[in-house]
Design a protein around this nucleic acid. Structure first.
Lengths: 213, 213
DNA sequence: ATCTAGGTAATCAAACTTGACTACCAACAG
DNA sequence: CTGTTGGTAGTCAAGTTTGATTACCTAGAT
C-alpha cells in the first residue's frame, strides 16, 4: 500500500471540502513530496479514483475565485471516512518497512482517541519485534554463519532499522502517555492545513515529551 | 529510482548470461521480494525494457533443458555494465530515503574495489549529514518551536532514521576497513547466486568485523 | 492597450508495478 | 497409458506513478 490514498483522504477530510490544488498544497506544507509519492499527478489521480469508488464526491463547480482555471471540489463520504480510519489504523500497526506510510499516518494520529493511538502503536512495536524474530530465525545458521558473506549486511541493515523503528515508537508512546498533543475528543484540534491564501511557515525541531499541549 | 534495474542488471551480470526465471530465483534467494519490488512481473518487464535500451541483449533461443516452456536468455552489454556501475555508485551515495535501493546496492558492493566502496560510503555519510542539517534548519524556529504540534513527529522520525542510517554506515565502513569480505580484484569472489538447480539455504545473523574473509 | 511573468489548477502519455493467470513439460500414481 | 500434481517460464490487463506540458487568469511593466 502506498501512502497517497491516506494522505489525500485525510487532507480532504480536514478541510471538509477541498479542491485538488488545496490538497496538493497541504501535502507540500507537510513536506510530503519529500518523503512520499505525493506529486501532482498522483494526487489528482487519487482524487478521481476515490471519487469513482465513492469515497469522495466530486462537485464540478467553483469557477475559481483567485484566477486560474475552474476547479473541482471534493467532499469525503461516510464510506470514505470509514476507509480513512481503516487505512490509518493499518498504517500505524503494519510493519511493511515503507516508512512513507508510517509518516503519513503520523500526520493523522491525533484524529484517533489518545487511548487507541497508544494501543495501535503498542501493537506496532509487537509486530516489529515479531518480524525481527522471524527474520533472524529463518535466515540463520543451518550451515553455520558466515555463509552469506556480504549479503548478510542487507539483513543486518534491515534488522538495525527495525530496532530503531521499535525504539522510536516506544519513545512516541511515552510522549503521548505523558500528555503530548491534542487528540480526538480533547477539544480544539491542532490545525495542520493551510488556510486559504496563507503563507507556508514550516518549523520543527527535535521535539520531546512536554511540549504542544 | 526504484531498485529493480540495479537488481536485475547485477543478477544478469553475475551469471554472465541468464534467463528471467534464473534472475527471479536469485532475487528470491537474496530475500529481495521482501524488501523491494522484485516481483515476477517487474523483473520480466525490466529485462525487456533494458534489452530495448541495449543494456542487455536477448537471445531468443534455449528450448529449456529441465522442462517448462522455452526461455529467453539475456546477456549484459558494455553499455549495460556502465549503467550497472553508475546505478551502483549512485545508490550507495544518494540518500533518497528509499531503503530498498540501498539494500540492492549492498548486494553488489563487493563488485567495486575496496577503496572505492569505502569512499562511496563515506560520501553517503556526508550526504546524510547534509540532509539532516538542511532539514533541521529549514524546518525550524521562526515563530518558535511547537508550532507544528504532532506534525513535528514526522520530521523527528525522519531525522532519527537518518541518524541511524549514518551510524550504521559508519559501522559498515569500519568492518570493510577491518578487512571484511572479498572485493573486486582480491581473488575468488563470493558467489551470491544459486547454481543451476541448487537448493535455497539462506542464512544470516548479526554479523560483525572479523568474519567472512 | 499590450506584453509577459508568474501563480493557479489540472491533464496527459509513457513508463512502471501488481497479482492473477497461462502454457509447457516431467514424473508418478493408479 | 491416462490423469493429475507440481515445478518451470513467462504473459497480460488493470492500476499506479512520473515528469512534462497545457490552459487559465492577474498584475505590473512597456
Amino acid at each position: 500500500m502506498s501512502a497517497i490514498r491516506l494522505l489525500v483522504l485525510g487532507a480532504v477530510r480536514q478541510h471538509g471540502r477541498a479542491h485538488g490544488y488545496q490538497v496538493r498544497n497541504d501535502l507540500e506544507f507537510w513536506g510530503a513530496h519529500e518523503w512520499s509519492n505525493a506529486k501532482p499527478g498522483s494526487i489528482y489521480h487519487a482524487l478521481k479514483q476515490m471519487a469513482k469508488q465513492e469515497l469522495l464526491v466530486a462537485h464540478e463547480i467553483a469557477p475559481s475565485t483567485v484566477g486560474g482555471p475552474p476547479r473541482t471540489e471534493y467532499e469525503i463520504t461516510e464510506k470514505g471516512t470509514e476507509e480513512f480510519f481503516a487505512l490509518l489504523r493499518e498504517s500505524l500497526t503494519a510493519y511493511d518497512q515503507k516508512p512513507d506510510v508510517l509518516s503519513a499516518a503520523l500526520g493523522f494520529l491525533v484524529d484517533l482517541e489518545r487511548s487507541e493511538a497508544v494501543r495501535l502503536l503498542e501493537e506496532r512495536v509487537r509486530v516489529i519485534e515479531q518480524w525481527r524474530t522471524a527474520v533472524t530465525e529463518s535466515y540463520t545458521p543451518e550451515e553455520g554463519p558466515g555463509q552469506l558473506g556480504h549479503i548478510g549486511e542487507i539483513m543486518n541493515f534491515w534488522v538495525t532499522s527495525a530496532d530503531t523503528g521499535a525504539r522510536w515508537t516506544r519513545g512516541l508512546i511515552e510522549r503521548i502517555r505523558g500528555g503530548a498533543y491534542t487528540f480526538a475528543g480533547e477539544g480544539e484540534p491542532f490545525v495542520g492545513v493551510l488556510a486559504e491564501g496563507a503563507e507556508n511557515p514550516y518549523a520543527t525541531q527535535e521535539r520531546h515529551p512536554g511540549d504542544a499541549r
